[in-house]
Write a protein that binds this DNA or RNA. Sequence first.
RNA 1: GCGCCCUUAGCUCAACUGGAUAGAGCACCUGCCUUCUAAGCAGGCGGUUGCAGGUUCGAGUCCUGCAGGGCGCGCCA
Length: 599
Amino acid sequence: MSDLKRGLSEAVAAAFAAAGLPAELGRVTPSDRPDLADFQCNGALAAAKTARRDPREIAAGVTATLAADPRLSAVEIAGLGFINMRVSDTALSERANEIAADPRLGASVVEARRRILVDYAGPNVAKPMHVGHLRSSIIGEAIKRIYRFRGDLVVGDAHFGDWGYQMGLIIGAVMDEDPFIKALVEQLNGRNQPVSAEEEKTAFAALHDRVSLEDLDRLYPLAAAKGKADIEYRERARRMTAELQAKAPGYHLLWRHFARVTKVALERDFHALGVDFDLWKGESDVDDLIAPMVKELDAKGLLVDDQGARIIRVARQGDKRDLPPLLVVSSEGSAMYGTTDLATVLDRERSFDPDQVLYVVDQRQADHFEVVFRAAYLAGYAPEGSLEHIGFGTMNGTDGKPFKTREGGVLKLNDLIEMTRTKARERLREADLGAELDPDAFDDTAHKVAVAALKFADLQNFRGTSYVFDLDRFTSFEGKTGPYLLYQAVRVKSVLRKAADEGAEAGEIVIGEPAERELALLLDAFDHALAEAYERKAPNFIADHAYKLAQAFSRFYAACPILIAEPPVKASRLALASATLRQLELALTLLGIETPERM
RNA sequence: GCGCCCUUAGCUCAACUGGAUAGAGCACCUGCCUUCUAAGCAGGCGGUUGCAGGUUCGAGUCCUGCAGGGCGCGCCA
């Protein structure tokens, strides 16, 4: 089964080949001029260049072969040599029925299944997630779902930031504030034997009452600032980091408490966003690999001593810029960001053996990943080219600067979600929607509307560019928004419910009206949108398709009455509406957006 | 200083990797609810694609320069 575009491409390619021209020129695309054609091929123009012939003459040779194609109702040469094709209602109806009967709604599967690991979200221990984690979470989730749906074996990993200098900072800050904890930690650190299960339980209970995530969130910025200003404070934090990494019992126990406290909040936020992971691995999970890795890197002759640290130089001849080296061991003996990243490459190679690893991380870290990837290739930890940084732009406020609250602080993700939910409830009430729903169902709908608003606002943009996040604008819920898409889906559901109530059944789709044609052509275009999203790791192609599909349905809905139509037409339109709903919901699912039953 | 990215309608963003008349949404204007949910539909207004060159039959897209903006450049992640 293939979409019309691909099917026609094959025919046009064959026609080009028959004319003694390269078959690649037969590539067919949806028409730029829907008033003139459904599909077009620009190959004759390209051929004219190399063959030094009149493009219209080449096009004429190709169209002569195509004229007999039963799928086409018209084949014309237009302009300088565009080949315009109009698909027959019969062929379009056939394709629509095929999609309606297909569990995958017309989407094809990759030819060769690959093993893919998607590294996204990257929450930190001891810090609540903030808006900066939003894009990675929702883009990563969408990419994971898109890859999985196309047939790859995909694993999503949250990749915790739980093992760096920030841990030493926060440990020190907590101990400074609470003498009880300081005493507890130091007492444990001073011992030789490990902490027993009983002691651990008691200690966790005490810590539970004394250190909350709010405390950590309050202390961390202060400690970070102090670490920057005060050399001694910084040195101490670094020392603590190194001792934590050496598993000093007190530090390690306190750190485990931080991780526990953090995870509760993370699970709440991820659950609210509909983001879930196959792996919750952190930087600390590869700690045991680091010492042997360093040894091995040394044996391979890759490590160089420099300014008290040990580094890998990754510069290559022909580089336009001076890439910094990878800092493997700091002068304090600590593992750095890049060290754990490199060890993680190694860990994944051993445990999962991915064909490709996608790092869904802020574009600003492009250089960092280039350095890590080069080091990994040098060390033989990953096949050249298998590691890819999927960068994205920052989410800015209406002032064009990175998003802040009115008070100038960083907005927590949970607060953002809550604000959006509140707006969604308000808007539902204003529009007098969901009035018949019971309170739980109303809240559920409001939540789905909020998540749709949030995610669609992000995913409709190409990930690489920064975008302005304007709460007032995106909570207005008009036009090209998530709620619009949900609204269209809900309208279809409503019609289908009514049809079911009166016992009406879907039947064979017969395309006739212009609005039906348009809708069927869009249903057919799904596979292409999916392939684009897949190849370019860009969910906006799915978002765009979903929006166009919803728009086409809305036009169809306005132009073609369903329930009051004559029986055969009614059955056809019901089938078309049903297929549209299923494809729309599928596309939204790939974006991580759920649709309510009513709103 | 070096490097990377960006600049498209008043605003927010697209444009299937060089093709026809650069598309959507918001805002603004005009119509349409005793037919299936009007958060909707139909139509209108709005562009020298930052500027100047170049390559090409053809450039928002490729090349060069300039201007403006953002970001990154080893012991944070």
